[in-house]
């Protein structure tokens, strides 16, 4: 019942591969048998109406659902040939390689510098911390705005700057994949545009999976789009196809704004 197009991996190993993935919250089957391949160095958007399971699916990719006591995951998520849900896997190691940026900017109540240095410090990457911090802030397009006030509180920044700080903080641990859960939904249009430009830059080095409510945003920034509805993956393929020529009725109804 779902449609999946061929994903062009360009001869490379996929960054992530979900296979028959299901998530339950108590009796609720929030994500139902989803299989999805995330190609390396691409932006994959997860779209769908509220409650369709897109955030839950995203949180499977770095085992964030472990933190919710009632959540139970079945199926596999393969990453470098290993199932992230294998008993031997340490979720702490997973999250180092698969970073996450959240819906609301959530900087720590620390200085700008300490926010970015937090990840390297807890992961024992203390060599040349100053350079790591600078490079991460540059990658997040924030360096020019904060380089002269790194010791200021992160809360002195605007919402958009805080979100870029959270992106810098994630990049500082040098992940391979960055998960973004509606990273611009709490921001104004100008801050949103900056985040979108940043995502475009970041895919040169990182694979990005982004959940968004905003269909125009998905259309602008993503290479592939997955449409989820009521816990099921309805259609997954190149963004242009999904938005201009979808095969599934429900996808077309959603992307043309007939429901959502």
């Amino acid at each position: 019942m779902s449609t999946t197009y061929d994903i062009d991996l360009a001869g490379r190993e996929p960054a992530l591969e979900a296979i028959d993935l299901s998530v339950y919250y108590g009796d609720t089957h929030a994500v139902q048998d989803v299989s999805l391949t995330v190609p390396s160095n691409k932006v994959v958007a997860l779209i769908g109406p509220s409650g369709c399971g897109k955030s839950t699916l995203l949180r499977c990719f770095n085992r964030m659902n472990d933190l919710i006591g009632s959540a139970r995951v079945e199926g596999r998520v393969d990453f470098h040939g290993q199932n992230l849900y294998d008993d031997a896997i340490d979720p702490v190691e997973v999250r180092r390689r698969v970073g996450m940026v959240f819906q609301k900017p959530n900087p720590f109540p620390k200085s700008i510098y300490d926010n970015v240095a937090f990840g390297p410090r807890v992961n024992g990457l203390k060599d040349d911390l100053d350079a790591t911090v600078e490079q991460s802030l540059r990658s997040a397009a924030l360096w020019d705005e904060v380089s002269d006030r790194l010791t200021d509180s992160a809360y002195a920044l605007s919402g958009g700057q805080q979100q870029r700080l959270c992106i810098a903080r994630t990049l500082a641990v040098k992940p391979e994949i960055v998960l973004m859960d509606e990273p611009a939904s709490a921001l104004d249009p100008i801050a949103t545009q900056k985040i979108e430009e940043l995502i475009y830059e970041l895919k040169k080095e990182y694979t990005i999976v982004i959940v968004t409510h905003n269909m125009q945003q998905a259309a602008r920034i993503s290479d592939y789009t997955a449409f989820l509805y009521m816990g099921q993956l309805i259609e997954y393929g190149p963004t242009e196809t999904i938005f201009t020529n979808p095969r599934e009725e429900r996808t077309e109804a959603y992307v043309t704004g007939r429901f959502g």
Partner: peptide, 24 residues
């Protein structure tokens, strides 16, 4: 959200407690 942010960076429960929650 602060705890999640720290977990998302590969912090352990002890690190989340002592380096984020207690200072906050």
């Amino acid at each position: 959200s602060l705890r999640e942010g720290a977990y998302g960076l590969g912090a352990t429960k002890l690190e989340v407690s002592t380096r984020v929650v207690v200072p906050a």
